[in-house]
Computed example of a mutant assay.
Amino acid sequence: MSDDLKNILNNSNKDIDNQKLMDYLSQQLSKQDTHELEKMMAEDDFINDAVEGLAEFDNVKKLPLSVEQLNRELQKQIAKKKDRREKRKIKDQPWVYFTIILLLILTIVCYVIIKKRMDHQRLPQKPASTQQLKTE
């Protein structure tokens, strides 16, 4: 069997040998190995799903092409999600930080100016003529 077919699971599951899986599907395993693999399938849903999915293929020769196509589609989806995530991030742009700091400073300055004017208006102002009369 070709090396491409052996990499169906990409060594993601250490419990099962890819060659053993392919031999099981082509019914080339011994009875003992078949029983052992079926026992593993009963215990692990992932292995069971993998065997069922691979058994659905009519032609084993088309399997590497399907795997390659699935990998390409997966890479496209991952790239799209990564691009979307990058677009949502705030880029490290110094003008954004400068603008934020400038707005904060302007807000604080406006607050201080308004506060001083309000305090100045609240203070009672004495007319100049009354002040002169009291001192005389």
Rank of each mutant, 00 (worst) to 15 (best):
M22N: 03
R117P: 05
N13R: 14
Y97P: 07
L70T: 11
M1P: 15
K134D: 07
D83I: 12
N10H: 13
G53Q: 10
S66F: 15
M40Q: 14
C110D: 12
N11Y: 13
P64H: 04
K115M: 10
Q19G: 02
R122Q: 04
N48K: 08
A42M: 03
E73K: 09
N48A: 05
V112E: 10
D92M: 15
Q19K: 07
V96Q: 14
T34C: 04
D83V: 09
L9Q: 08
N48L: 04
D4C: 03
F57R: 00
L102S: 02
P127Y: 09
K91M: 07
T107I: 10
Q132L: 13
D3S: 15
L9T: 00
V51W: 08
I47T: 04
M40W: 08
K81A: 05
M41D: 02
T99A: 06
Q125Y: 09
I113D: 07
N11W: 10
R122D: 03
K116V: 14
L29D: 01
I105N: 01
G53N: 11
I105V: 07
K61F: 06
L104C: 12
K80T: 04
L63K: 00
D45Q: 14
L21F: 00
I113L: 12
V60I: 13
E36K: 13
L63T: 02
K91C: 05
D4T: 06
K31C: 01
E52W: 11
T130K: 15
I8F: 14
Q125G: 09
M118P: 00
N59L: 04
K91P: 09
S30E: 00
I105A: 07
I90E: 13
L9N: 00
M1A: 01
V112N: 05
Q27Y: 14
A79P: 05
L29Y: 06
T99R: 09
L133D: 11
L5W: 05
N13E: 08
I113G: 10
D4K: 13
L21A: 01
Q32C: 03
M118R: 14
K62F: 08
